[in-house]
Design a protein around this nucleic acid. Structure first.
Lengths: 204, 204, 204, 204
DNA sequence: AATTAATCGAGACGGTACGTCGGGTCTTATG
DNA sequence: CATAAGACCCGACGTACCGTCTCGATTAATT
């Protein structure tokens, strides 16, 4: 999908408009955030991006592809913080994920991931791309904890990550509408017991 | 949601066709399973159910309502088994949930739940209805474990449920296409470490 | 093409909106007159007729069909006048035809007829329908003249009609833009020598 | 209309590709003949001519101009034959015209002329260019007939031409599809009565 | 028995978005 | 410079679906 992959572009013909792809993705996200899935139209995206429809369709096969690309471009900011302490690291990670899910675009990322998993390989490896990226962050944190002797060497990192991510997801799932506006404190309040539970499970 | 709930119906006029509602729900699920969300159309549902469109719209407000109703009618078979052992109970529960998610209709249930949480109260309390039902099952199991002294009295039941459900969901999320065909053994193989981790977290 | 042909309509389903066809044809002619061929769009026709696009496409296969139908519905008012005199009859007929051709819609009729003749039977028998109708008028006039002894019995009516119609067409062909605004007097001025020539040819 | 007309071109830069204009015109006619007006696209013309779109647009303002130019380049072979006899001259002229109209490209010439007359001066003086050229041929023939005393001096040459051309056009108009394949004999059979009628009208 | 009213299948309705395609312009790299 | 390639913006095309509506035909409960 739009795999530019550093072509130095010695191509013939008029070159593709620089930055058009980004503008379109940006416009797509804004449209999605404003009108949701049902009110998300290609015409509106093109208009908002100041671009012809053909320019959009030249880059993405259809509506699904565009939305998927737009969302996955924003799914990346879950990183492995390093506070020097296992518990703090996990709390920060879980807090970031929670915040991400409360943002319409972050939540859309989950929605699309779920769609992708159910579809017949249509949306390809989107799920893996996103979840893989996330589990990487968790693995890094666990690794550091082992090195610091804050966790036993045989801690089941993957299961730990699944529980942590899953519990946060479940919590986000029960919030709808205005309930999704939470302060950072409220978020941490909800995150802490989960981290505590998971640490106990890890034997730390 | 079609809450007629045993109206004895002494109404005038032609009575509603017996069983039409069920046929429509059935058709809706089949259509959804075959064509997915994007290819799910009311016309096709009506045609497959051998029913006029008006008959459908007389029972459900719109497409979302129908799909939601269809899915939620199938979401109910996660029950609290009772094997006499905490671990076995949890494994059975998690296994059932996993199986449910690998079925297209069960997975659709999750998808709709995610949609509902993101929409502005549109799909109403669907999320809560479904997740509430599930958490009830978990709570029952935990309660029994406490009574049997297989778990400490202060075990954080809700967090435990979130981790267990979340971890299963995350696992289902990483499977797409043909990977979703798992035998019961394969399912249990994936479920066991999660239950073990969760039991450790619960101090049991 | 829209051949209603007095079906008393025992059909199933919602009946077609009465008069929608006429409204659409009307709108099509107005659009065509205002914007010409290039600016003639189906969307605009539907909007002007106060009708959904589907309603238009349910009645006519595509743009060409609609325009053809619209124009042919207006091609019919060339009738055989009866002044009691051969020359006057022909002058009236030719004058009417000339006026018809100076009107944008009348001219469109010719344009479409020409298209139809060149196309691979696509527009069907449109040419014949229109020209047949016209030649009928001429034949009637000639017949009456023979009965009145104003023309010899063996006058070649068809050739006469071809010459008369053809000459008028040729004259209309050389007029473009504002030159096409002619008064009735100017029209008759141009028509008279043709009729005189044709009468001479007929030996009258 | 591409009026370069013998520029010796001592210009700077890369010279225009020799013969590109002709190739484009050729391609345009072929495309028109194959797909008709509706299926006539600039992209296809450029592709068939093995030329970039800019090369086409460098020479012709737009689609109409190109098609007009292409057709008018082929409209020129109606000439005033000289058989020494008025009737034969007219029959030859009318026969040539008939043949011209039965050819797809010749017919296109008429179609464009009709379009041009109806449009707001868009296609300019195309009509006049073509019809003028033709009426010149007729005038020449009439002039010679007068000199040979085969026609009276006051014969209305223009009206005669209009009738002759018009009648041929009308006949061509009633033929569509396969009916347009006529042998030379069939053509002359249809032409002769018209010439006879016109000669009578001319008092010859 | 006649009336009333809710429901049924069918399918046309006004809208709106889809994804495609063509026109005419523009921007590059290559003669 | 002209050219070929081809991306650009624009907007119409014809299709499909939504949710509504209007039919004629059923089918009870109520008169």
């Amino acid at each position: 999908m739009n795999s530019d992959s550093r072509t130095p572009r010695p191509r013939r013909g008029r070159p593709r408009k620089e930055g058009a792809g980004e503008q379109i993705l940006e416009a797509a996200l804004e449209e999605y955030a404003e009108h949701g899935w049902a009110g998300f139209t290609m015409d509106a995206v093109a208009r908002r991006a100041g671009v012809g429809k053909s320019t959009v369709y030249l880059r993405w096969r259809d509506k699904d592809s565009l939305l998927t690309a737009a969302v996955s471009a924003r799914s990346g900011y879950i990183e492995a913080v390093d506070t020097g302490n296992f518990r703090s690291d996990l709390e920060a990670l879980a807090g970031n994920l929670f915040r991400f899910f409360l943002d319409p675009i972050g939540w859309a990322s989950l929605r699309i991931t779920v769609d992708a998993a159910g579809s017949p390989a249509a949306l390809g490896r989107f799920s893996e791309a996103v979840t893989g990226q996330h589990s990487q962050a968790a693995a890094t944190i666990v690794q550091r904890a082992i090195e610091r002797r804050q966790a036993p060497a045989d801690v089941p990192g993957q299961t730990l990550a699944q529980c942590l991510y899953g519990a946060v997801t479940m919590q986000a799932l029960t919030l709808s509408g205005d309930d999704r506006r939470l302060s950072d404190d409220q978020i941490m309040e909800r995150v802490r017991p989960v981290v505590a539970f998971v640490l106990a499970g890890a034997g730390a």
